[in-house]
């Protein structure tokens, strides 16, 4: 107990404990009332938790264990892990899983490295730095439906991006219409929003690094690259990890651009797990297979969210 008082806000902590002490004397009646109020105040959130999270999750798990017959006249029968078996026996589904993992292995480091470089750039002493920083934030404010439509237009084979490539002497590219480039197009439009967003977190992390460390590095004649790897990166470890996990969580459920621009195509090249679960359930009408996909997606999500929660908790303890 004594060791835990060395927190970032020792004064508040001490005050809180001091404030609680007189209560201990007249504890009995007050305590029961407190418990009652705690239950009353918590109940809406707990009801919401059960209805909005537990029920659908359990529902998905149960459904994924049944097999329905077309037409819906014969009741669904228990199928065990049969749906999972047939999913993993389907080469299309296996490539969807692989594609989703590869997509995440590319887009997350890509966005975070660029967000980090830009965060460092926009915390340098350069003229009107706030203006340039704001320009990078602006895409965050555009809702993803709008940015998907705009990028769909921009990446049109006869669109402005190809016009720019031609003007620079390159060959026009098919972008979203090519199985080789469509996913890269999705990554590009998601990053137009994502880089600025994650940069926000990294900038506040950078601003929390004490200036003295950089002064010390200067005295030691460390160059900018050495300073970056020996001071910036280690001091930024926590925000970086947090951003990495949060970005991963967000990208695993990326849905709008796929649904709006490519419908998973061409040739399934942009079929990610989230879209596949949607298409299996509503496009192909296989509720049970779709539920199994949702369960797989949710398991992956829970893993990353637990990781994220750990990082959030650590964020509160002093460095």
């Amino acid at each position: 107990m004594a060791s835990s008082t060395v927190t970032s806000e020792p004064v508040v902590a001490k005050r809180r404990r001091a404030g609680r002490r007189p209560e201990a004397g007249r504890q009995r009646p007050g305590r029961r009332q407190e418990l009652m109020w705690a239950a009353i105040f918590l109940s809406p959130a707990i009801v919401a938790l059960v209805v909005l999270r537990v029920v659908p999750t359990v529902g998905a798990v149960v459904q994924s264990l049944y097999k329905a017959f077309p037409g819906g006249i014969i009741p669904a029968t228990f199928h065990g892990l049969g749906n999972y078996e047939s999913l993993f026996a389907d080469p299309n589904f296996v490539s969807t899983i692989v594609r989703t993992l590869v997509f995440n292995a590319i887009i997350n480091p890509f966005q975070i490295v660029l967000a980090l470089l830009l965060a460092v750039l926009f915390t340098q002493k350069i003229p009107a730095v706030g203006v340039w920083r704001t320009l990078v934030f602006i895409p965050i404010t555009v809702p993803i439906v709008g940015s998907s439509i705009a990028w769909g237009a921009a990446l049109n084979p006869e669109g402005p991006v190809n016009a720019l490539i031609s003007a620079l002497g390159g060959n026009p590219q098919p972008f979203l219409t090519s199985p080789d480039q469509a996913l890269a197009g999705i990554i590009m439009l998601a990053s137009w929003i994502g880089i600025g967003y994650w940069m926000l977190f990294l900038i506040s992390g950078l601003q929390a690094i004490p200036e003295e460390l950089y002064d010390a590095a200067k005295i030691d004649r460390a160059g900018p690259i050495r300073t970056f790897f020996s001071i910036t990166i280690p001091m930024l470890k926590r925000p970086l990890l947090f951003v990495l996990v949060a970005d991963t969580v967000a990208n695993f459920v990326l849905f709008v651009p796929v649904q709006l621009l490519t419908q998973g195509g061409p040739q399934n090249s942009t079929t990610l797990l989230m879209f596949d679960a949607y298409r299996t359930t509503y496009g192909y009408g296989s509720r049970n297979l779709g539920a199994a996909e949702v369960v797989i997606l949710t398991v992956i999500m829970i893993f990353f969210v637990l990781l994220q929660f750990r990082l959030l908790r650590e964020e509160r303890t002093p460095r």
Partner: peptide, 19 residues
């Protein structure tokens, strides 16, 4: 409470919509 509401809503939107 925090963990379960941090699982992105999209992940369970499909079964919830059916419910």
């Amino acid at each position: 409470i925090v963990i379960s509401f941090m699982v992105p809503f999209e992940a369970i939107a499909i079964p919830l919509a059916q419910q």
